[in-house]
Each structure stands twice: as C-alpha cells, then as structure tokens.
C-alpha cells in the first residue's frame, strides 16, 4: 500500500466496514466493490446506482494460504485468503479466520466478520475491514 494515505482508507470505510455495495437501478445487478455505473447498462445506469447492504453470507470459490506476506501482514503468516461468492452474487477477496487452516475448503460456507486488517507501519494507523469465518452452525434448542 502507498504509505501515509489516510484519506484513501477513510473514503472506503462504508464498504470495508459494512459491506455497502451498489445495485443498478436499471437491471438490478449488484456490485461490490461499488461501481459508478453498471457495466451492462452503462449510460442507462448513470445516476441510478443505489447503495445496498450485503448480507455477508457466502461460499469459498477458491483459496490459498499465504506464507510470504507483504510488510504490513508479516506478523500474520501463515494465513488463508479466499475469493468468496456472496449470496447476492458479487465475489470478494478476504482472509478466512476462526478456523484451522486445513479446514478451509472450496465450497465452505462463510460469513462476514469485522476485524483488524493491517497496521500501517509508517503512520501507525490501524486499518479495519471484513474477514470471513465459517458460518455458525444452527443451535438445536429443545
């Protein structure tokens, strides 16, 4: 990451904290991260992209385990990172937490969790955002 870019992080807070995407008012497709226009409707979608909060539930499409990390992540290795397909359609890249590394699998059901992502070694700023954890099993109350 470019060092010292605090505004660069601040302006993405709604997306990274609360999974706010965009829905095209023309065709209904949902995008995350947000887009200024819909790639399918293009000019018809301008001014019609609406904020939409995503459920945060999804499934692992593919994954890896990072052993050699960028500077700001060195203290976290090894860590799993995955492409997650959200229920609403968009796919995002995020770390998988709260499970054993060897339990991470393609097809695994996961859900959003708010976590610390990295610490900027230059400004000291701590950046937060989304990671994903295995879906909680439904409790069987009798």
């Amino acid at each position: 990451m470019t060092i010292g870019g605090v505004a660069r992080f601040w302006r993405e807070i709604p997306q990274r904290y609360n999974l706010i995407g965009k829905q095209c008012g023309s065709c209904g497709r949902i995008y995350f991260p947000p887009r200024e226009s819909c790639p399918y409707c293009r000019r018809k979608s301008i001014g019609k992209m609406r904020d939409i909060k995503l459920s945060g539930k999804g499934e692992i499409v593919t994954y890896t385990v990072i052993h050699v990390a960028p500077h700001n992540f060195e203290g976290q290795v090894p860590y799993p990172i995955a492409i997650v397909q959200l229920e609403e359609g968009p796919r995002i890249t995020a770390q998988i937490v709260d499970c054993k590394i060897e339990d991470v699998k393609i097809g695994m059901k996961v859900e959003y969790t708010f976590r610390r992502i990295q610490e900027d070694g230059y400004t000291g700023a701590i950046y937060y955002g989304y990671k994903f954890k295995p879906c909680q099993q439904k409790q069987n109350h009798q």
Partner: peptide, 25 residues
C-alpha cells in the same frame, strides 16, 4: 487491485495460487 485485493493481504503469488487451487479442484 490495490484497494480490493492487496489491502486484504492478497499477494501477487497468492492470487495465482488461488487459480492453481481452483484448477486442481
């Protein structure tokens, strides 16, 4: 993508590794 891949800890080899995992699967 710096804002939506690298920010979350994805490295360049990591992104290709995710292709490899999927290809093997």
């Amino acid at each position: 993508d710096q804002e939506w891949e690298a920010f979350f800890g994805a490295t360049f080899p990591g992104i290709y590794a995710m292709i490899a995992t999927k290809h093997m699967h």
